[in-house]
Nucleic acid binder design. Structure first.
Length: 498
RNA sequence: GGUCCCAUCGUCUAGGGGUUAGGACACCGCCCUUUCACGGCGGCGGCAGGGGUUCGAAUCCCCUUGGGACUACCA
C-alpha cells in the first residue's frame, strides 16, 4: 500500500463537535500508527452557514486533545491551499471538464421551480430528486441562457440505468441502483462547489489514502464513486464511522442533548486525556480487555479493522469515570495547575495567582484529588480552605442525628480550648490530641469528629479531619469553632424561650 | 414514502458453529473507615422474534420487528 494520508475535513459552521473529535482522533491514530500524514482541511464551501470563530475553535480543540496535524492551517504543506474557499478555480476547472466530457450539464432551474417540484413529488408519494429538466438542453439553448446571464448550477449526469458498486472497509460491498440517484449539483450558482465535488477533487489531489468520516455519508458514496469514475481516478479506501446517538437512543446526538462541543467538555472540567480515552472506545475496541489508554498506547493498539459498525449511544457515565481516573493520576502540582482557572473563575483565587497561594493550593491537592470527578468540582472541594470565613453552619448539621445542644456545645468549646493551647498543628499531634480528648470525655471518636468537621467546613463530607485541620491551620480553625459554639448557644436560648 | 446501514446486560463492548455468554461503566450489598471519596470483594443484568442450515447456533442464511442515516444550489 502507498503511504497513508488521512484528512480531517470539518466544516466551519460551528464549534468542533464531539463526533468530529472522534473522527479526527481515528484519523490521527491511523496516521501516527502507519507513519503517514494527518491533514486538516477546512471545508468552507457554504457561505451561508459560515461561522467566523469556528476555524479557531476547531484548531484549539484539536490541539487541546493533543491531535496535531502535519499539513493544513498553520502547518502548511505541498498540496494546499487547505481552505476550500481558496480553491474555487480548481473546482470550477474540474466541473467544466465534466461538462465538456458530457458527464455533467448546466442547469438553469430556479430554486422556486425546484421547490414546487419537490412539493408535487411529495404529494404524489413519488421518490424525491431532481427531475432532470435541464439534462437535454441543446448546446444553443445553453449558450443563449449563459449569454443572457442566467444563473446556473452544474449537475452531474448520473447514468439512467445500471448500478454502482461501492466499497466500505468495514461493511464491504454495497450496491446502489442508478435509478435511485438523481442528478446532483456539483457546482453551485455562487461558483462554490458542493461537498461531493470538493471532497472528491481534494481527496484525489491531496493524495488521500483513507477517508474516515461519519456513517451519514454512506448514502452519498455512490455519487462519490461515480465522480471518481468520471474523472478516471481510483477512489481511496472509505471507512464510515458509526454515528453517535442521543443518550436515550432517540436520534442523532445534537445540541439538545447537552454538551456536544469539545470546548464545552473542557469548560465542564473534563481532562483531554479522559475525553480521548472515552472517544477511543466509542466505536472501537482493542482485542484485549484494556480500558485505559494514553494517546501513545492508543497509537500502538489502534487498527481500522476493529472499528464497530453499529450506532453508539453517547452516554456520559463512563466519561466521568475516566475523568476521575485521570485526575487521580495527575501530580499535585499538575492538578493544581489545571484546577486553577476554575478557582479563578469562581473568584476563590486571584489571576494571576501569587506563588504562595499557588503553593498552598498544591498543598491541598492530596486532600481532594480522589474526591473530585471534574475539575469544576474543585471550588466546592477547597472553597472553605481558601475563604477566610465560612457561613455559620446550620445547627442541625452541627448536632447530627443524636447530639443534644448542651453536649455538642460543650464538646466544641472544649475542642476550641484544647486546640488553642497547642502550637503543634501537625496531623499527628492533632489526631493524638483529639482522640485523647474523646477518651477523656468518654464519647466515641465520631461523636467528637463530626461536629468539629461541620464547624470548620460547614460540610459533613470532607477530607480526613486531621489532614483538614492541619491544612486549614490554627488561625482559621479556632474562630470557626467559636462561631459554631455561638450558633449552638443561640439555638439553646431560643429553644429555652419557647 | 424511497434508498441505505445497524441489532449481545440500562450503556460501551468481547465472543463470528460446541463458552457456566467474558470485561468495563452505572446500580445494589459487604469490607476498609472519623464523614465523603478512593480501594477491595460480591451481586443484579443480555444474545429482539420467527423460520431454516447443522449432530449442535449468540455465532451462518432468510423473513419479521425494532432502531438509525440520507432524501438541499448544507456538510
Amino acid at each position: 500500500m502507498d503511504a497513508v494520508r488521512v484528512r480531517f475535513a470539518p466544516s466551519p459552521t460551528g464549534y468542533l463537535h464531539i463526533g468530529g473529535a472522534r473522527t479526527a482522533l481515528y484519523d490521527w491514530l491511523l496516521a501516527r500508527k502507519t507513519g503517514g500524514q494527518f491533514i486538516l482541511r477546512i471545508e468552507d464551501t457554504d457561505r451561508n452557514r459560515y461561522v467566523a470563530d469556528a476555524v479557531q475553535d476547531i484548531k484549539d480543540s484539536l490541539r487541546w486533545l493533543g491531535l496535531d496535524w502535519d499539513e493544513g492551517p498553520d502547518a502548511g504543506g505541498e498540496v494546499g491551499p487547505y481552505f476550500q474557499s481558496e480553491r474555487l478555480n480548481i473546482y470550477q476547472k474540474y466541473a467544466t471538464q465534466l461538462v465538456e466530457a458530457g458527464k455533467a450539464y448546466y442547469c438553469f432551474c430556479t430554486p422556486e421551480r425546484l421547490e414546487e417540484m419537490r412539493k408535487k413529488q411529495e404529494q404524489a408519494g413519488e421518490p424525491s430528486g431532481y427531475d432532470r429538466h435541464c439534462r437535454e438542453l441543446s448546446a444553443e439553448e445553453v449558450e443563449k441562457k449563459l449569454a443572457a446571464g442566467q444563473k446556473y448550477v452544474i449537475r452531474f449526469k448520473v447514468p439512467l440505468t445500471g448500478k454502482t458498486q461501492v466499497h466500505d472497509e468495514l461493511r464491504g460491498e454495497m450496491v446502489f441502483d442508478h435509478q435511485t440517484l438523481d442528478d446532483f449539483v456539483v457546482l453551485k450558482s455562487d461558483g462554490f462547489p458542493t461537498y461531493h465535488l470538493a471532497s472528491v477533487v481534494d481527496d484525489h489531489l491531496m493524495g488521500i489514502s483513507h477517508v474516515i468520516r461519519g456513517e451519514e455519508w454512506i448514502i452519498s458514496l455512490p455519487r462519490h464513486f461515480l465522480l471518481y469514475a468520471a474523472f478516471g481516478w481510483t477512489p481511496p479506501a472509505f471507512v464510515h464511522l458509526p454515528i453517535f446517538l442521543a443518550p436515550d437512543g432517540k436520534g442523532k446526538l445534537s445540541k439538545r442533548h447537552g454538551a456536544t462541543g469539545v470546548h464545552e467538555f473542557k469548560e465542564k472540567g473534563y481532562l483531554p486525556e479522559a475525553l480521548v480515552n472515552f472517544l477511543l472506545l466509542l466505536g472501537w475496541h482493542p482485542a484485549t480487555d484494556q480500558e485505559l489508554f494514553t494517546l501513545d498506547q492508543a497509537v500502538e493498539a489502534f487498527s481500522v479493522e476493529r472499528i464497530n459498525t453499529s450506532p453508539v449511544n453517547f452516554s456520559l457515565d463512563k466519561l466521568d469515570w475516566f475523568n476521575g481516573i485521570y485526575i487521580r493520576q495527575l501530580s499535585h502540582e499538575e492538578l493544581a495547575k489545571r484546577a486553577l482557572p476554575f478557582l479563578q473563575k469562581d473568584g476563590l483565587l486571584p489571576d494571576p495567582c501569587p506563588p504562595e497561594q499557588f503553593a498552598y493550593l498544591v498543598r491541598l491537592m492530596p486532600l481532594v484529588q480522589e474526591r473530585i470527578k471534574l475539575l469544576s468540582d474543585i471550588s466546592d472541594a477547597v472553597g472553605y480552605f481558601l475563604r477566610e470565613e465560612i457561613d455559620p453552619p446550620a445547627p442541625e448539621l452541627l448536632l447530627g442525628k443524636k447530639g443534644t445542644v448542651e453536649q455538642v456545645t460543650a464538646i466544641l468549646a472544649k475542642v476550641e480550648t484544647v486546640l488553642s493551647q497547642t502550637a503543634d498543628f501537625s496531623e499527628e499531634n492533632l489526631e493524638r490530641t483529639l482522640r485523647a480528648l474523646a477518651e477523656e470525655l468518654q464519647i466515641k471518636a465520631g461523636q467528637l469528629f463530626m461536629p468539629v468537621r461541620v464547624a470548620v467546613t460547614g460540610q459533613t463530607a470532607t477530607p480526613g479531619l486531621f489532614q483538614l485541620l492541619a491544612a486549614l491551620g490554627q488561625k482559621k480553625v479556632l474562630p470557626r469553632l467559636k462561631q459554631a459554639v455561638a450558633v449552638l448557644q443561640q439555638t439553646g436560648m431560643e429553644g429555652a424561650s419557647t
